[in-house]
Design a protein around this nucleic acid. Structure first.
Length: 132
RNA sequence: AACGCAAAUCGUUCUAUCGCUGUCUCAAUUUAUUGGGAGAGAGGAAAGUCCGGGCAGCAAAGUGCAUCCUACCUAGCGAAAGCUAGGGUAUUGUUUUAGGAAUGAAACAAUAACAGCAAGUGCCACAGAAAAUAAACUACCUCAAUGUAUUGAGGAAAAGGUGAAAAAGUGAGGUAAGAGCUCACUGGUUAUAAAAGUAAUUUUAUAAAUAGGUAAACCUUAGGAGCUGAAAAAUCAAAUAAACCAAGGUUUGAGGGUUGCACGCCCAAACUUGGAGGGUAGAUUGUUAGAGCGUGGAGGCAACUCCUCGCCUAGAUAAAUGAUAGAAACCUCGACCAAUGUAUUGGUUAAAGGUACAGAACCUGGCUUAUAGAUUUGCUUUUUUA
RNA sequence: GGUCCUGUGGCCGAGCGGUUAGGCAGAGCUCUGCAAAAGCUCCCACAGCGGUUCGAAUCCGCUCGGGACCU
């Protein structure tokens, strides 16, 4: 199987209802400057993970810089979500998750990628523990 | 040549790998997905939302008032907002010039929300006698009283000091003392006439009046604007209300309606029958072929217009247009070389650093603001050479 | 995307063209054996830049914050 790093429209988190549920009931992992909130889906829709990024306007004022950070975060997620997806497909779960950027500085891609690797590893471990 | 200011134009490019969003197309099947291919994918300001237009809605979108906007003149351009060119006036600056000086004149440049306080009303703190129908503190003059420096009545508006601003200035006459009270000269304003000019306005002459400032104070004059905004608006499927529509119908004239107020206009409750579908969540249209963009040519000082040829040129919606690596270009600093004016210029090198402001959300014309660097034009200042 | 409102010391908050009130907080003093309370004094402000005006917190323009609404 050739490795694929797709992140298409279907995998985005869009529904307002889902997002409200996520913030009400979801668990979160904090690894500065990122905060990951996740929740197991009630109704499965055939997509392993629905994923969204949020950069608050209060922290980053200019639209250009907000877009830049969102792109870097999405890129890092796209390249590093393989392990998590494997675990989920083995255990038959589906997740909604949202990443919130909490710094006032614009971090470089390599820094963001490092943080995301850490945070996804922690999530993967916790999923494995749950499935056992 | 350098620095600065102003205006205009441009505002990074290429390659590889992995991706994102539409369009077209081919193939596969599980018929809505997967895979392949082709081609497209942020700006000069996309920003602020300060004006304008398209477009859409309003059961009448009507009338009046209110409110808001515009405001030197001429010509041109533009759908409008507005823009361009030329001119006028005012203020400021520079230079030249007249003069003993105050100051005036001329030229050039910059700036101007540049109609009207001689239509009315309001306001002008503190200080000062008085801040606008003038008034009367000190001082001045006349008269009276007391009795020898005060009080009272009146006159007068020159002097004083205050203030951002003191009711034209100088001189003479005049008077009890004074005063545009009168006269002469000068300045300023308005009106009228003449001349110049298309006009704004300028110059000259005459006359009259009393003539402070403020309209980004109320306001007046002239001209203009109906109001609300794509979360407008239209359509669709699922499930179905006390809400909607039609007909009948009794009574009320209350209440309701997308213009701030008034008038007008429209709808008009309860009940019965029938029909149809709203909220909510979502999808589609609106939504990108247009006052469109580009090349070339012609006209015009310019704004812009005309002609020819070519092009289809972002359509996202928790919101695509990216990430990484490597080159190139440009800039800064460094190093080296050369030139001389000895602190500048030119060249080479590539080690280091940097490449701004900033992200479409219906479209579009202006305005405003942000902007590394490059190029061009104009101007001021300084230096060098002739 | 669109339509509006608002900005005054560390905090709250008056002021509608003429020296920026007042309260809370902070510092010092008085009072007290020591504190509290009370009293007195001090301290620190008109978001920024231009314009109109003799003179702007106030009027006008631009910029920068903060907030509200869009059945």
């Amino acid at each position: 199987m050739t490795p694929k790093f797709n992140f298409s429209k279907k995998e985005k988190l869009k529904s307002i209802k889902d997002i409200e549920q996520l913030f009400k009931k979801g668990k979160s992992i904090y690894q500065y400057p990122l905060r990951l909130t996740y929740l197991e889906k009630k109704e499965k829709n055939g997509v392993l993970i629905n994923f969204g990024v949020s950069v608050p306007k209060k922290k980053i004022k200019l639209a250009v810089n907000r877009n830049l950070i969102k792109r870097r975060v999405r890129e890092a997620y796209r390249l590093n979500n393989k392990a998590l997806k494997n675990v989920l497909s083995n255990s038959g779960k589906e997740l909604n998750m949202m990443l919130i950027y909490g710094s006032e500085q614009i971090l470089s891609y390599s820094e963001i990628e490092g943080k995301i690797k850490v945070i996804l590893c922690r999530l993967t471990e916790s999923c494995e523990v749950d499935s056992k």
